[in-house]
Amino acid sequence: MYRSAENEIVEEVENQVHPPTSITLKINGTETRLHVAPWTSLLDALREYLDLTGTKKGCDHGQCGACTVLVNGKRINSCLTLAVMKEGTDITTIEGLAQGEALHPLQKAFIEHDAFQCGYCTPGQICSAVGLMNEGKAKTRDDVRELMSGNICRCGAYTNIVDAIEEVMHTQPAPCHE
């Protein structure tokens, strides 16, 4: 979302009525303090205030899954989450999955299995897959398909996405990221 001069004026007026709240979030392992309005979604806080633009805004209504991040290890839609309500939580975004130059196994598998074309849904798909593995409920290919249904891929890379997840799931049954 581009912040135009007009938006900034509106924001300034609203800030006088409802002063921003100061919150602390642990984002990708780093304690981060920021000032947000009550209506700032976690998605907008990540993208607009912290420049963590890996998390994508797709539908902004909880239907596409592009904004999926992990809060205390659980996958959620950051577009339907108010940042102020997540004070004190531990948030992992796509930027927090790799260890330095070493990609997360799911990131590697997505590349190896050609699990994307345009890539817009990919950060959400990968965070969702990390959440799926933490939950440990998916046993079969059909389970993976069902439990990844909250992530839409406009390019239709579903077959390869499921291949990538299945491979990591079967080589790394234990939770791979908390």
Partner: peptide
């Protein structure tokens, strides 16, 4: 109902 992300919330 819903999706895993929504059911987590």
């Amino acid at each position: 109902g819903a999706s895993p992300q929504l059911r987590n919330m």
